[in-house]
């Protein structure tokens, strides 16, 4: 085995053991945030694949998350849970008695999201840049509107309540780690290289023999799959889902993570997903009443989101590359950093 691989496996084992320790020591509230961070890693990476690798500016993430969330939730709910939820209009008969364990339900959620993603992408991938953005945003709104109106399938605006909270650290971070490894190997593969060639220059990529449509469709489908998985995890973490959860706000949060981390960087996205999730929780006090000692600021709900929008604006305006740009923290880059800064520092 190569040395690099040994270090990699060592790192993964280290991360897993830290997470295991956290799993047993943290309280419920902290665990919930830790899970949320893992889910945002999955979501951020999937949007990063579409926006950062393939350069397709998609704003439809919330829609695919909604599909994953609803599909998996409807599959894991027991017949009794369904009956108590669908009190306005009974659920369609073919779903009434289906009950699957969490893992297959989640995978089916991801697959359904991927199929829908591919179906949606096939016609609209002809569009570029801002048109693509608006069309994907449109589709995510259409999905949300449909979910609000199909009472017998999704329970409409009432949403689904009382889902069993299957998502735990093993699931959320397990899938996050799998996603990270998948993204790294995807980028090293010929597919990943083709994605990046398309991002840099479509015409040049096409003339080098890269099938544009096939690769764009593939990137979009894989991205939708992970968005669906993320949605399924989120649904079973929250325990409640309704169509309003999957407004543009949700896409905005994921976009914020990707932009802050650096569009196109895997490690950047991971770091920023964790930081953003934790700071969103840590800054919750901004929405409440703040006591500065000499004066008391009345509680203004929404202050937190103002701060986050300002942060996004500042990053885009003054620090366009985000945290990492397109660079990665790898074993190689850390070694280089060590040689450059620490060894030099020791000599002088």
């Amino acid at each position: 085995m190569k040395k690099e691989n040994k270090i990699r496996i060592g790192l993964i084992i280290l991360v897993i053991s830290i997470l295991t320790i956290l799993n047993f020591t943290l309280g419920n509230y902290q665990l919930r945030i830790l899970n949320l961070a893992g889910i945002y890693v999955v979501l951020g990476l999937s949007l990063n694949l579409i926006n950062g690798f393939a350069g397709l500016f998609s704003l439809g993430h919330a829609g695919f998350m909604a599909i994953g969330a609803y599909t998996s939730a409807l599959l894991t709910m027991s017949a009794a849970q369904k009956q108590s939820n669908f009190f306005v209009k009974p659920i369609v008969p073919w779903l009434a008695n289906v009950e699957l364990p969490f893992l297959p339900a989640m995978l089916i959620g991801g697959i359904v999201a991927a199929i829908l993603g591919a179906l949606i992408a096939a016609p609209i991938l002809r569009l570029r840049d801002d048109y693509l953005a608006i069309a994907t945003l449109g589709f995510s709104e259409i999905i949300r509107v449909i979910f609000t109106n199909t009472m017998s399938l999704t329970n409409g605006a009432l949403g689904l309540k009382g889902l069993t909270r299957y998502t735990n650290v093993q699931y959320s971070w397990g899938i996050a780690i799998i996603t990270i490894i998948f993204m790294f190997s995807l980028r090293r593969s010929s597919y990943g290289k083709a994605f990046m060639a398309i991002r840099e220059d479509e015409v040049a990529a096409e003339s080098m023999g890269i099938a544009l449509f096939k690769h764009k469709l593939l990137a979009f489908t894989i991205g939708s799959f992970f968005a669906g998985i993320g949605g399924a995890l989120l649904a079973h973490l929250m325990g409640t889902i309704d169509p309003l959860m999957f407004r543009f706000l949700m896409t905005f949060n994921v976009l914020l993570i990707v932009v802050l981390g650096g569009i196109g960087s895997i490690t950047g996205t991971v770091i920023s997903a964790v930081v953003v999730t934790f700071s969103m929780e840590a800054l919750r006090f901004l929405d409440g009443t703040i006591n500065l000692g000499f004066m008391v600021i009345e509680s203004v709900p929404g202050m937190r989101m103002v701060l986050f929008s300002i942060l996004l604006m500042l990053v885009v305006l003054f620090y366009q590359n985000g945290l990492m740009g397109r660079d990665e923290i790898t074993i190689e880059s850390m070694r280089r950093f060590y040689r450059k800064n620490i060894k030099k520092g020791a000599k002088s």
Binding site: N51, F57, D130, L255, G302, M305, S309, L312, V316, Q320
Partner: peptide, 24 residues
């Protein structure tokens, strides 16, 4: 003179900032 994607993110950010400021 920035890439299109940055301008677009800035536009979304501006929209979001105005909305949140309006809520506050």
């Amino acid at each position: 003179n920035s890439p299109k994607i940055s301008v677009m993110i800035s536009a979304i950010g501006a929209s979001y900032l105005i909305q949140n400021l309006a809520i506050v």
